[in-house]
Design a protein around this nucleic acid. Structure first.
Lengths: 212, 212
DNA sequence: TAGATTGTTAATCGATTAACAATC
DNA sequence: TAGATTGTTAATCGATTAACAATC
């Protein structure tokens, strides 16, 4: 963990963790990089480098890494154990969907409230979370030491919402809008642009169909 | 469009399109790369290169690109106009959320049915889409010429589902499970790994908090 | 010891950014 | 013409992959 870990390597952690836990349940105690690489269809050197960067202890030549230790180390890096509190802004179609999704807790994300500017839905409860007015964001964040803001508003409103979040003391933004957000240094914007994924899928399909 | 367009450039298309359409609505007819770059906070050369690669006609020095043409070209590449039919496998928490989400149509994705192995929910209708049994996937796909499969099952089941989809004639897989899928050549796997995004967010937060 | 696995340095690759000539 | 913008070639950067020595 002393070495710098690349962004791409961190993104692979959930995949590693899932497999390593599976192996642990099967009774394994030790695991080697080439073994994992073969199982996950990844390059051997990549896995070796990732493990070397993520593990607090060195691997043992000829045997590998201690499974429990590796899992612990990765969970710390990926924040699976410490719950991060988040708010969600924009309780439209996508926002509602994410509020109802029960899977984020497993990865250490806890959505504590949602906000929307539509008075008709303010006061409602979706997925057990209350919808509050946009005007209450700053007060809520400061009182509840919220660090993460999830943006699920339309693209044209995304930057304004982002600015409010930053003013409210948010340190990381998870942006689901197809918009390029500008933030001060020190604030992270993580884009989850499903439209971008669809664009790639679509381009691939068009090329595949053209080939025939 | 003659030039090869990089994956990253294609991912930027939704962001470009949103902004270009906004400009069109404001009455603009012509747009230059440096102008867009400034507005979206992107590198000028990057935008210039993207536009050059995506536009069927060349830009005019000193003026720029014809807005309508640029929008059309990008929509074709990103497949906004031709509806791609998709099925979703795994109607659990995340699957239900995506089925209820009304936003994909805008980007040319049409989820026509969902599949699950839980007999208790087979036959239900979520978001207007019927839930069918897993055993019917192949028949359904072949009869309805479905090209895209969306995987929202738990990670340990993802590869099996993927294999079924490939056998059913699917050409592109949108994978929401934190699993590394293996597919034959010619099939695209697009990972939408939200756990990966959360890992990055979490790492950033830990570093920010440590700094103080 | 022999051989598998680790760790590290070098080469490669894709994408971004810089520099600059061509054009309207 | 002068100047802004395009298109293209070269330099840089981050990440992946290859090569190889060190170690148990």
């Amino acid at each position: 963990m002393s070495v710098d870990i690349s962004k791409q390597a961190i993104k692979r952690i959930p995949v590693y963790l899932h497999y390593l836990k599976e192996q642990k349940n099967s009774g394994a105690k030790i695991i080697s990089a080439p073994f994992v690489a073969a199982a996950l269809n990844l390059n051997e050197v990549q896995v070796r480098k990732d493990f070397a960067a993520m593990s607090t202890t060195r691997g043992k030549p000829k045997t590998g890494f201690i499974l429990d230790e590796l899992i612990d180390n990765m969970e710390v890096i990926a924040g699976y154990n410490n719950a991060n509190e988040a708010i969600l802004v924009g309780a439209g179609s996508l926002g509602k969907a994410l509020l109802s999704y029960r899977g984020f807790e497993e990865y250490g994300l806890d959505i504590v409230a949602a906000f929307d500017n539509d008075e008709k839905i303010v006061g409602n409860i979706i997925g057990g979370k209350q919808i509050l007015a946009l005007s209450e964001i700053e007060k809520f964040c400061k009182e509840n030491k919220v660090n993460i803001g999830i943006i699920t508003v339309p693209a044209q409103a995304a930057q304004d919402v982002c600015d409010v979040l930053v003013d409210s003391g948010i340190r990381a933004v998870w942006n689901f809008a197809p918009a390029n957000l500008t933030v001060p240094p020190g604030i992270l914007v993580q884009n989850e642009n499903m439209a971008a994924s669809l664009a790639l899928l679509s381009k691939h399909l068009r090329e595949q169909i053209k080939k025939q």
